[in-house]
Design a protein around this nucleic acid. Structure first.
Lengths: 145, 145
DNA sequence: ATGGGGCTTCCCATGGTGGGAAGGTCAAGG
DNA sequence: CCTTGACCTTCCCACCATGGGAAGCCCCAT
């Protein structure tokens, strides 16, 4: 199977497949005499695994660990669970950060007349923060997503 | 005021201040004979504005628009409100995506024994997705945050 | 006058992803 | 057999916002 077909079959773009190979997330595949990469159904299977993990928000590093466990038939499911729940914790943290931003902004917007006059509490608050419902002292750093 | 002092006073790192200047988010400031940047209280005021907007998750482009309105004393507060609410919509969308990922993973983790045996529904589902509570056909692309 | 801590610019890296150029290859149809 | 178009290869560049670090200059206090 060509890289294009593998891409279509797995949902991972050809560009990304090459990238994953280059960075060692997946092992180099066989080549034709002309240098074309050849993919087996097994390979596509793995690519779909990766794709699915990306869908769930795992970083490439996280996927590296997942793949390790996937390939290790002596793995302990507790390890997988730990990995998954750690990722959930990351997600929930990020969600809380975004939630705080959204509610703060909504509160401000609700105070804004939204008319043709220039006075606007949103800008005022950006100018001089007045300790609004943003708890825990301004999170901001989107903690590396 | 030196760039270092301005950074401390505004909460924006010196590196980022230079970057904002370079990319035209803020106008170039005056320099000493030796080429040192000099910041006025006004400048620091603007930097704090920027910092605060970043805290609320605005992109630099978004901030560019906000700054435009901020400087425009004939602005209409409706424009600010529109900008803010559009951003809230982005945030909420992103939140929903992350939420979906988290609940899917939690559901899977709940099905995993988490013991020393290798069988694990999390890996199974990554291998061959079985239409779990991920609504709306796998969002995945973290829509450009 | 010297030393330490600023400042300057410039380059590089991150993480995933896409775009595109230059060149080789393959298969189908004339 | 040759052309054409669709594929493949590698390589470089861009994004966004941020940090790290080097080389070199500058300012102030001792």
């Amino acid at each position: 199977m060509n890289i294009g077909e593998a891409a279509k079959a797995s949902g991972v773009s050809a560009k990304m497949i090459r990238y994953y190979e280059e960075t060692g997330l997946i092992p180099p595949v066989a080549r034709t005499n002309a240098g074309y990469r050849i993919y087996s159904d097994q390979d596509v299977h793995m690519l779909r695994f990766i794709r699915r993990a990306r869908d769930l928000g795992f970083s490439v590093e996280g996927i590296r660990e997942l793949l390790g466990l996937w390939r290790d038939h002596d793995r302990q499911s507790a390890d997988v669970k730990r990995l998954a729940l750690a990722h959930v914790a990351d997600l929930r943290l990020k969600i809380r950060e975004l939630e705080d931003m959204a509610t703060t902004l909504e509160t401000l917007a609700a105070c804004c007349h939204g008319n043709d006059r220039p006075d606007c509490p949103i800008l005022s608050e950006l100018e001089a923060p007045t300790a609004l419902p943003t708890k825990k002292g301004t999170v901001r750093k989107l903690s590396g997503f």
